[in-house]
Structures are given as C-alpha cells and as structure tokens.
Design a protein around this nucleic acid. Structure first.
Lengths: 211, 211
DNA sequence: TACCAACAGGGGAAATTTCCCGTATGAAAA
DNA sequence: TTTTCATACGGGAAATTTCCCCTGTTGGTA
C-alpha cells in the first residue's frame, strides 16, 4: 500500500513536475493536486481521497500557505502537513509551524532529501530540516523578538509607508499629530530604527507592510 | 535524434522535477543541469555537450538569470535561450529579452504549454507567451518609462534607503550636501515622489535597491 | 568661439521630522 | 482605593528634509 500525498502549489510547472518526481519515489502516490487553498477545498469536497501527507507551498495567491495549513489542521488533524518555501528568511516559517506543519522544506533541497524527509515524517511524525538549510537560530529567537503591533500601530505603519506627511496621516486616522508622534516613537523603538525611512524599510522586511 | 535542453535553476527540487518532466516530452532530452550561472560555466567547460535550448531561471544567487543569459548569448549565439520566472511584474522580463532570450515563460504555465512553447521555439526560433500570462502592455511601455540612473544616483539611492541622514550620505560619497540635494531632486523627479520615504519605497518596487 | 548640457556646490528658508517636556482619562490591578 | 498602565494629546525646539535661486567648471559641438 502506497502512502498518499497531496500537493498545493500555484506554479503549475513545479506542481506537475513534483508530482512526477514523487511518482519516482516508489513508496508514495499523489492523490490530490491543487494550485491554492481554495482550489484544494473544492477538490477535497468532491474527492473523498484524503492524503496522509500534504505538501503546502507558502506563497500562493487566493489562499496562502498559512491559511491553508490552518484549515487543514482544523478539518483533518491527522494529516501531516509539510511547508514548502523558497527562502528561509521568510517570517512565515514560524507561522507555518504554528499553523500545524510538522516539517519545513526549502525548494532547493535535493530530491533525495525530500524522500528522506517524507520517510522520516511518515515514521516519526515530524522532520527536522537540515540545520544547514534553515537558520534555526533565527527560528528559535523568532518568538522572543517577535514584534507585536496593535491595530492602530499597524494602520499607522501602513500609512507611513507612503509619501504622506504625519499631518496627513493624523487626519486620515482622526487622531492628533501628537498621538501619531507617539505611535512613531513606539514603532521606532520596536523596529529599532532612527528615521521614518528606516521604519518603512524595516516594516517591509518584517512583512508588516507589503511591497 | 532528440532535441537537447539545458536547465539552470537554483531550486534543486524544481530543477530535478523539471528534468523529469522534460523526459516525458519524447522529443526532448536534458543534457545539462546547473543551479546558477557560475555552476553552468564550470559544467560547460568540462562537458562538451552543448544544448540547443537553455531554460534559465531569472532569480538565482551567485550569477543571476540576466548575467547568465548574456554570457550564453555571447559564447553560444546559436543557443535558444528561454527565461523562466515566477512573476511577470518583474522588471527583469525586458532585461532577459534584451540579454538574448527568445522566450519568456512563467513557472505557473501548464506543462502542456511548456511543450508547445519548446516546439514553437524549435520551429520558429522564438515564442510569444500567452497574452493572458504576461502583461504585454507593461512590457511594451517599459522601455519608455524605463528610468535611467547614473552610477552616482544609484549609489545615492542605495544609501538613501537607510537610517542615514543626507549629511552622512554626503560624507560617505565625498560630496557636498548641496550636490546630494541635487541627486535627491533628480531622483524625486524620475521616480515621481515627494518624499524620501516614497523614494525608498519606489526604489525597492522598481528593483533599484534590494530590500 | 560661443553655446549647451552635465555635474558640483553655496545661501537661505519653509516644511517636516524627531525628540524633549508634561497633562488627562479610563480601565485594570494591587 | 490608590496605583499602575495604556492611550490620547499639547507646547516647544532642534535636526532634517525639501525647495527655492544662483555660481562655476568641464567637455563637447554648432
């Protein structure tokens, strides 16, 4: 009896290629393919075949990796979720783990390592990726230097990443310039920067603000 | 006689999977695989098998897609170069074409389309990707709104994307604050922004400065 | 030779950002 | 009930950014 696998990735070429690759691993069989979380939900409804292991790409349109992993974790708690990503700098690593993934693999891992990882997941229920691949120190330190922002701060940060002056931002948020000043100071401290430019850049790096 | 193909992609999993996929296309055969331009150069030196078509990933460490395509175009002018990328918003599309690529494919194209594209490239020497896949308007307008920066401006822009003050930047560039002021004004105009924050953000969006 | 375009720089001023100081209010905790 | 804490706000000032106007040099080029 082969072990059933599901794959979710928005890149058709990668998705289909990976399916081919998994078929060369004699023990495994791909039973579900989807290009995003939404797509998967539809296919899981229609099709009754529930894979034992699900490979999930982190970056996807429509319904991303974290949301998909959370959903799967809730509806199919027994399913082993594996996150697939391009770059380990991504702050979503920890979020994928929190969302219920038992393994994290980079797309530049060797096929042999993928097979090994799958075996280990099947056997032990989890897989610790190669230390050389993922920056574990960052991962472990992540929680403690995880910066928490409240809604107002997030709104302010979003608006600060633009050509707007603080006065304009204050007007948009229906707050006094002084109050905005307080948020700025708080963000400077949390992000460890000395200027608005630094703040904007750091906001993007940390993923608080997109593009 | 099969048509020989080369593939360059830093993601092992994708690379190897793609090789498998190409082997399912009966007419094609992968003769060279590399994880970046540098790697390819070494392999091309050692190995005498020169592929007719080369698939090149745009985003790679060490030696990126554009540099690799240029090098191949110079040293193997007869080789048909195909750019592979994740996102069509990338400004490197036009650069890949300029570097000598005769086709541009997104990684979320369907395998069937890849095969069609390869056939067409083999036949006609080039391939026009599906209009629905690539934003051609952007591509066509690209040249005219391509922003040209001289070296000093690039250096300044890079330094401006930080916590540094203009005074500090001036010192680092061995220029007067007034001169820096001129560069700032020039960049504001070219990037169509009103503030340093906007400039930094736009610099990142346009790819002049890496995150 | 005179003109033009580019680059480098100076003085000054208004707008904005950054950083002090301190106050008030309401909710939660001691 | 007093204390603590988070949030909202104000005045003022220094630093920085932004925007004017104007000078000089250099290297083509008409």
């Amino acid at each position: 009896m082969k072990i059933s696998i599901g794959i979710i990735d928005d890149h058709q070429l990668f998705l289909k290629s990976l399916v081919l690759m998994l078929h060369t691993f004699k023990k495994y069989e791909v039973v579900v393919q989807a290009t995003n979380g939404q797509d998967l939900q539809n296919k899981m409804k229609a099709d009754t075949s529930i894979p034992e292991i699900m490979l999930i790409d982190v970056n996807m349109p429509v319904m991303d990796g974290v949301a998909t992993a959370s959903w799967l974790n809730q509806h199919y708690p027994a399913m082993k979720l594996v996150a697939l990503s391009m770059n380990d700098t991504d702050k979503t690593i920890i979020e994928m783990i929190k969302a219920g993934c038992c393994a994290y693999l980079l797309k530049d891992t060797h096929p042999n390592d993928l097979e090994k990882a799958l075996n280990e997941i099947q056997l032990k229920g989890y897989y610790n990726a190669d230390v050389s691949n993922i920056n574990f120190r960052r991962l472990l330190n992540y929680e403690q230097d995880l910066i928490k922002l409240n809604e107002k701060e997030k709104t302010f940060l979003q608006l600060a990443c633009s050509d707007l002056t603080y006065k304009q931002i204050a007007a948009l948020m229906f707050l006094s310039e002084r109050t905005i000043d307080g948020y700025r100071e708080s963000l400077f401290q949390k992000l460890n920067v000395q200027s608005r430019v630094g703040m904007a850049l750091e906001a993007i790096r940390k993923g608080f603000v997109k593009l």
